[in-house]
C-alpha cells in the first residue's frame, strides 16, 4: 500500500504517488498560481512537504487524497499571497495559458466528476464563489468584500455549491 510505503520512508513510493496524484495536484496548483514554472515548483515543494510530514497523516481522519490536496493547495495559495509573486504577476492576464483549456485527465477515483459536468451543474454565481474560495485563495469575508455581497450570502452560496458537488459524486 502506498500509505504504508510512505510511512516506511520508501522513496520509490514517491514515483507511484506522483503517477497517481500529480494530474490532480498539478491541475489545482496550476489554477491557483497560473504559471507552469511556479506550478512545477509548488508541486515539488508539495512532495517534499508530504514526505517530511507524513507521520502527521491520520487515515482515520480522512483520505490521503484530501490530505495531500490540502497541502498542495495551501502551498500554492501561500505562493500567490507572497508579496513577490503579486509584484511579478501584476501585469499577467488571468487564465492566459492554453493549458487551462485542456481537458481533464481520466481519474483514479471512481467518483470522479468531469469539469464540464461541474460547470453545467453549478450556477455561475456558485461557480464564481467556489472558484474564488478554492483557486483564488480568498476567505469567505474577502469574497464578500470582493463581490460586494453580504457575508451571509457568500456562506449560503458556498454551502449550496458544495452540496451540488456532493450530489455529483454520490
Amino acid at each position: 500500500m502506498l500509505v504504508q510505503r510512505l510511512r516506511d520512508r520508501d522513496e520509490s513510493a514517491m514515483t507511484l504517488f506522483y503517477e497517481k496524484y500529480s494530474n490532480a495536484l498539478y491541475g489545482v496548483i496550476f489554477r491557483i498560481v497560473k504559471k507552469e514554472e511556479i506550478a512545477e515548483d509548488v508541486l515539488q515543494e508539495s512532495l517534499v512537504k508530504i514526505w517530511h510530514s507524513f507521520q502527521s497523516y491520520d487515515p482515520s481522519k480522512g483520505r490521503l487524497f484530501t490530505w495531500v490536496l490540502n497541502i498542495s493547495r495551501n502551498l500554492a495559495i501561500d505562493k500567490i499571497r507572497s508579496r513577490q509573486y503579486r509584484v511579478n504577476s501584476r501585469t499577467q492576464p488571468i487564465e492566459e495559458s492554453a493549458a487551462l483549456r485542456q481537458a481533464a485527465e481520466p481519474s483514479f477515483r471512481p467518483e470522479h466528476i468531469g469539469l464540464q459536468e461541474v460547470t453545467r451543474q453549478l450556477n455561475p454565481e456558485q461557480k464564481q464563489i467556489i472558484d474564488l474560495l478554492y483557486f483564488g485563495g480568498f476567505t469567505q469575508s474577502e469574497v464578500a468584500e470582493e463581490l460586494n455581497l453580504p457575508l451571509g450570502t457568500v456562506k449560503t452560496r458556498a454551502r449550496a455549491a458544495i452540496k451540488v458537488l456532493s450530489k455529483l459524486i454520490r
Binding site: N23, Y26, G27, V28, G62, R63, A104, I113, L165
Partner: peptide, 24 residues
Amino acid sequence: ESALGAYGEAHALTPPAGMKERVL
C-alpha cells in the same frame, strides 16, 4: 472535503512533458 476534493480533481491537468523527472 470529498466534494471539494472532487472539485479540485475535476480540474486535473496533465503536467508538461519532462516534469515528472525534474520534480522527482
